[in-house]
Each structure stands twice: as structure tokens, then as C-alpha cells.
Simulated scan of single mutants.
Amino acid sequence: MADLNVLAFAGSLRAGSYNRALVRAAQALAPAGMTITIFDLAEVPLYNGDVEAAGDPPGVARFKDAIRAADGVLIATPEYNHGVPGVTKNAIDWASRPPRQAVLDGKPVAIMGASPGITGTARGQSQLRQAFEFTNSYAMPQPELLVFRAHEKFDAEGRLTDEATAKFLTAFLEAFAVWIPRFR
């Protein structure tokens, strides 16, 4: 396998977020040849067309540069009120600009998520896949990674402790390593 550089981010700003913990676990479990770099969305302000017209803010410019340099993008999204949370959607909104020239155009992406709920982040992930139709991004269809009852799978320090979830995350990352080169 050729070296793959993957940019990962969690669609949560909370320090103790299960999705931040899931991204760190992915970084630790990345298959040989895959390097995962984590971007903190705290640098990315709310999307505003007036701000964009004046030029991307520094955090947005860094985010877009990181996506541009990556072979693929790994997203860990929470689910709030049966949908994509604002932090995740805001990041995608910035990365989708300008239309037809966005850094997400033609970019392979993988979506995962962790939630205390029993359905994981299924609805949020489904909505996010719809956004990637507009950005012309290639969302990996299978396997899906829906970490449900996340409070039972991570310890107080945010370390993944559930062996079955770690095995599935490893398989998910291996599938992403096969998915990415299809679009080079």
C-alpha cells in the first residue's frame, strides 16, 4: 500500500467528546502506510458569506489547506436531535466553498461516529452523506462505523477500551485504505 495521508476531525468542540476520542483511537489504530492527522475545528468560525467574501479566516485557510494536502478525510460526527450537529455541518460548509472549486471536490471521505444512544450516529451520518453529493466527495459506503453506547466503550480519559469496537475500527480503517486509492 502506498503511503496515505488522512485528515481527521471530530464534529464536536467538547474536550471530553466521544467523537474526539474516536478520532484519537483511529489515529492509534491506523493501518501500516496510513498516517492520520487530527484537525481541531475550534479554529473554524461559523460560516458567513460576508466573511468569506473578505477572504478565508486563518483557521478556515488552515483547514482547507489540510484537506487539500490529504489523500482522504475521516470524519467522526456526533448526532444531535436525530441529525448532523452544527459543528460538523459548519466545517463541511466552509470546505464546500467556493462551489465547483472546493477542496472536497473529488476527495474520498469516511464517516464514523460515537454516541451514548442505541442507534449510534446513523441519522447524522445519513444526512452528512447527502451533503457530500453536493461537494462531489466520495463517501465510503461500507462498512459503517456506528459506535453506540459510547459511554461504555471509552474510559474516563477517553481511551477506547472495548475490544470489539477496536477490531471494527481497525477493519473500517483498512477499508478506507482500500477506498482512497480508487480516486487518485
Rank of each mutant, 00 (worst) to 15 (best):
M112V: 12
A150I: 00
A15Q: 14
L128R: 10
H151I: 00
L173E: 12
H82D: 14
S115Q: 05
I180N: 11
T170C: 02
G117H: 03
D155Q: 12
L160A: 13
A25S: 12
L160D: 14
A28L: 04
A122R: 04
E144L: 12
E157T: 01
D65I: 01
R68A: 14
R129H: 12
A114E: 11
P108K: 05
T121F: 06
A42G: 14
V103P: 00
M34A: 13
T35I: 08
A2P: 15
P45N: 10
M34G: 14
P98S: 04
F154P: 14
L169C: 09
W94Q: 01
G86L: 02
A156R: 09
F134S: 13
V84Y: 00
F172N: 05
R24K: 15
A70S: 08
Y138M: 13
G55Q: 07
N19S: 04
D105G: 12
D3F: 06
L22A: 01
D93I: 04
Q127F: 05
F132D: 13
A66Y: 03
T88N: 11
A70R: 06
M1G: 15
A122C: 13
A91F: 01
L13R: 08
D71E: 10
V84T: 13
Q27H: 06
V60K: 02
A26E: 03
L7Q: 07
R62I: 05
D105E: 15
A166K: 04
G72E: 07
E157I: 00
R184K: 09
L29G: 12
A166V: 09
F148I: 01
A42N: 14
E174N: 12
L169H: 03
P85T: 02
P141N: 04
R129C: 13
D3M: 10
F154D: 11
G117L: 03
L4P: 07
F168V: 07
I180H: 10
S17F: 00
G11W: 10
K107D: 13
E133Y: 12
N19Q: 01
G72D: 06
S115V: 02
T121I: 02
A150H: 10
V6P: 15
Q127N: 09
